[in-house]
Nucleic acid binder design. Structure first.
Lengths: 238, 238, 238, 238
DNA sequence: AAGTAAGCGAGACGGTACGTCCTGTCTTTTC
DNA sequence: GAAAAGACAGGACGTACCGTCTCGCTTACTT
């Protein structure tokens, strides 16, 4: 996952590359992102923090953007979709979790910077989709099938392309709205906003594909723990 | 509008700043953005293209990000909301116009780069909101009042805060979804997607605030000309 | 003397140049030389100290070196040759006076810097000779004629070119040796050194042109007051 | 010799500094001095001529003055004291050699500029003495002991401090007079002047310390070849 | 008294060089 | 043969001065 492209398949000759160095470099990258942000992040600084020579970095990653992408992609994998009882609550939960992740300094600075770089670099754009975007569509798919199991949503239509289209739309709307609210409008993504947004999304969905049934008020579980876990300082990260 | 902060109110002493230099610099910045993108854009290159000394740049803008912001902000002002007959058509129109604007290389590279910088710079964040985000909320407000005039939407509620909240939500959802679809998912924002998205939005809106009436099919006007005008090379811009 | 080249011959039209500005500029130049030396002396700084615009400087002096030359040349005019009773004592006196002048920070930094500039600028070289070098040959001529009046030296030979040659030699030897001792060898020019040097010079002179008679010990007057006056802070100079 | 301060004692880690770069930089500095003089000499230009990055210069020399000092100091080492048969002829020879060296554009512009800088920089002053002044006292010492071997001068006095004092005086007088004649008075140091000066010096010396015997006319050898060698373009220097 | 021509303080202007920082490559020795 | 160390060529940075150029006054002589 966060490993760089080692075509080490069958053990090559000479000294093998140090896996510890990989881990140290990615951790150092995240730490440096927190402290200085993308703009002042330098390869030399990362190498120094990781106790590694610059050559070792360049042997593994071709560019700063790829290193940073690998360093933060793993953080997005920590997003979860806890079962809060009904679809609306699950949507609110994932919105709040995602917003919490975007509140972490390394995540927001790295994500936006890498996206900015990708506007002029198709290869990087593809790498971002692969490492972050497409991986997190699982959240939509999971929430969808869970709602179907609960009977809140009808089963998938016969044509899988139609499903994919709706999933893409939902993902773009959720991710786009949360990012825009958090990083552009710079206003808090709190429970009130999440509720309002979930309402808009779910009622709107009913028009796009057969809609959800209303959510019984007593069914809502607690807020997902990960929503706040993201904001806490993670132990052992540096 | 795109002028840097000249507190020249009452004629100050000494030689006044050259307005021609301002224009040349902003035009050179846009041209350079098209050719080399944000990453390879240098202050020296901009100065050279504008036939201006570097000091003249730094006298007006403290940082590359502020210069670029001023250079592209004016492009967002060209967005219009042509009357296409009904609210749904107006939404589709603005979505397509905005997507066309984001297809221009200078717009997308500059917007994302400036947003990335702004994640660690509150002053820049505020400046972006002022120069771009808040200015374009006029599109939502215009569309809204036009629909109210048509009778498609009920009049504003008594509490103006409530209206503001809904307008913000709509703006975050539209802008966020279009940006995410265009620049992250990297899939086309075409008429089919715009229709699907407008459906989701308008039906969702009905749940958030009293909803729109259905759109008479015969009422839809033509696509806004600006949707494609943005993608064309602008004459005389060098 | 310290006035720049005003070809104001017959009163020109328009507002006349301010003589106060001239004085303020030269004083500011000397003050700045003391504080920051030649290397960090800037035209802008001088203008600011003098309460004058840069244009006013450039209207009068074409280059920093010319301004500085005019500013310090006047200091060399303060050198005097007090009558200390015999030629040897007069020589020692002028050596000590000159060394005291070279101990002043503005004098030494300006003199050497202007000489350095002049190695690649014939016009400046000529201007230096005119403003400083040739003017101070009067000291040698005065000392010489005084010694002749005392009978310590024979009258000038018939050929004035021969006299000029010897005067030049004496001047080069005195000025050169004192400057070298002070600024290159960086060792003190004290009474002991002055005595030793005067001995070498006067005895050597006897071989070049008919020599001096010995100096009666009781004839030596006091040290010239100007020898130390130069080292004191001059009142009212800034 | 002209190498900058490498405390590389026992082979350090990492890539060692390039000795070829050192040589190229010093040669480029001399060449640039000839062409543009001290005033227009820039670090960037030197780096460019030497085919080296500016950082490589700054890694070795902290300031332009130190670089230039190292670049020209080596030229002063080429001064020699050929045996011309008697002390007077040797003095004339060294005076002419020194004057020839000061006729070279790089030498005069660099020497005076570095001395000017040194008036406000004690460290540089000390570095100049070490690299140029004290090294060339060997010429006085050599001439002196050679004259003693010939019997033209008595052996050194018992007190070595007395000898040092006289040597310093001689050096200041010779170097000072030649520099002043050449660069300040701007008059030629030719054989006639050298003869007159040598006469003054040697006869004067007799009064300071026990003097030289007269020089037998038939003993004078030819002019030192180095007197003119310095003015010729040196082969293979760039 | 009005006109006019230069001087003047202020500060923007096109430039040049500065000395620093970072990039990505290379050459060493050590493991 | 990978790794740490650090020198290397290159290039952009943001700053400091340069010497010139407008500006809107001010000052004195000319009519």
């Amino acid at each position: 996952m966060a490993a760089p492209d080692h075509p080490h398949s069958s053990q090559r000759r000479g000294r093998p590359r140090s896996a510890a160095a990989d881990r140290a470099i990615l951790a150092a990258t995240r730490a440096a992102l927190v402290e200085v942000g993308w703009g002042r992040l330098t390869m030399g600084e990362v190498a120094h923090r990781a106790g590694v020579a610059k050559t070792t970095l360049y042997r593994r990653w071709a560019a700063k953007s790829e290193l940073v992408l690998d360093a933060v992609a793993v953080l997005f994998d920590e997003l979860e979709l806890p079962d809060r009882g009904c679809l609306r609550a699950d949507v609110e939960g994932v919105v709040l979790s995602f917003a919490a992740l975007l509140r972490r300094p390394e995540t927001k600075t790295a994500l936006m910077a890498v996206l900015a770089e990708s506007t002029t670099d198709e290869a990087l754009r593809s790498r971002i989709r692969q490492a972050i975007v497409d991986r997190q569509k699982r959240l939509v798919l999971d929430g969808r099938s869970r709602a179907q199991r609960r009977g809140e949503l009808p089963p998938d239509p016969a044509d899988p392309a139609e499903t994919a289209q709706v999933v893409d739309l939902i993902f773009d709307v959720i991710a786009g709205a949360v990012v825009h609210r958090s990083l552009v409008s710079d206003r808090p993504v709190d429970e009130a906003w999440a509720r309002q947004f979930a309402t808009l999304l779910l009622d709107g969905l009913g028009a796009v594909s057969p809609g959800p049934r209303p959510c019984p008020p007593e069914a809502q579980g607690p807020l997902p723990s990960s929503a706040e876990a993201g904001a806490r300082q993670r132990p052992g990260e540096r």
